[in-house]
């Protein structure tokens, strides 16, 4: 990727789905109803991304830190996710979307849910329309630690390790770097999300809460992205006061 990617459509878009709780609070509803309302947004965004030609979409559904939430909320989320996965599995498959789940290592995840994740992965494994990665029980640092472990186990000499080599030990090494991260609800944090892959990502923080986020918001983000000037840390065309050797 270089200047050629300027003003092109992002290849890999990631969404940090933030604001479900606040959405519910503003309506004096229990937090859980915010999560329930998020389902519509998820499906809407998947559909918008697919039609806009985004090849990779990642959704941050549940972080390793989310286990600290109240047990009832966690239980509700597990149940909801299972229902959503089962409800939309045939549709996702019919749309040619390849689904996979990043994380999902904690034994607290109900076996039935893990089974459904595995089944959806198997079912859609051969699809090539768009790859939807759902980060569930995901932690960016954890992934890097795992990659380091795998690297050490493979017995490579320290000098032989470069970025490319390291990345090949991350989960789903075929995933390209994230081009654009959308974090809804105006919060401006990374929250341990796909740390390695977001290194050069553009970030956008639309103030709208995730349950209110819809396809037009998503397309607006894509448009803004295409107007941005991505430099990947290279030398920009005009830099003031840059010391020359």
């Amino acid at each position: 990727m270089s200047a050629a990617s300027l003003r092109t459509r992002p290849c890999h878009v990631a969404c940090v789905m933030d604001g479900n709780g606040r959405w519910a609070q503003r309506r004096s509803l229990p937090r859980t109803s915010g999560h329930r309302a998020a389902e519509t947004t998820v499906i809407d965004v998947i559909e918008a991304a697919r039609t806009a030609g985004v090849k990779w979409l990642s959704l941050y559904a549940f972080s390793t830190e989310n286990w600290q939430r109240p047990t009832t909320e966690v239980d509700f989320l597990m149940h909801l996710v299972r229902r959503v996965v089962r409800k939309h599995a045939p549709l996702l498959h019919a749309r040619g979307i390849r689904c996979r789940f990043l994380g999902v290592t904690d034994p607290r995840i109900p076996a039935a849910l893990a089974r459904d994740f595995a089944d959806l992965t198997t079912l859609t494994d051969a699809n090539r329309g768009m790859t939807l990665t759902v980060a569930f029980d995901h932690g960016g640092r954890q992934d890097i630690v795992e990659a380091a472990r795998s690297l050490i186990r493979s017995g490579v000499p320290a000098d032989a390790v470069d970025e490319r080599h390291f990345a090949s030990h991350l989960p789903f090494p075929d995933t390209p770097d994230v081009d654009l991260v959308i974090r809804t609800s105006g919060e401006q944090r990374i929250s341990n999300f796909m740390l390695w892959q977001v290194a050069y990502a553009e970030w956008m923080f639309p103030p709208v809460l995730w349950p209110d986020f819809r396809a037009p918001h998503f397309l607006e983000c894509l448009r803004t992205y295409q107007q941005r000037d991505r430099r990947f840390g290279g030398v920009p065309p005009h830099v003031n006061g840059d010391p020359r050797p």
């Binding site: 996965v85 599995a89 045939p90 076996a111 039935a112 089944d119 959806l120 198997t122 079912l123 494994d125």
Partner: peptide, 19 residues
């Protein structure tokens, strides 16, 4: 692989999956 996918689909759409 095709049969595996069929199996996965059956499980996903079954109302009370075999545990």
């Amino acid at each position: 692989a095709r049969m595996k996918r069929a199996g996965a689909l059956v499980r996903l759409v079954a109302p009370f999956p075999v545990q």
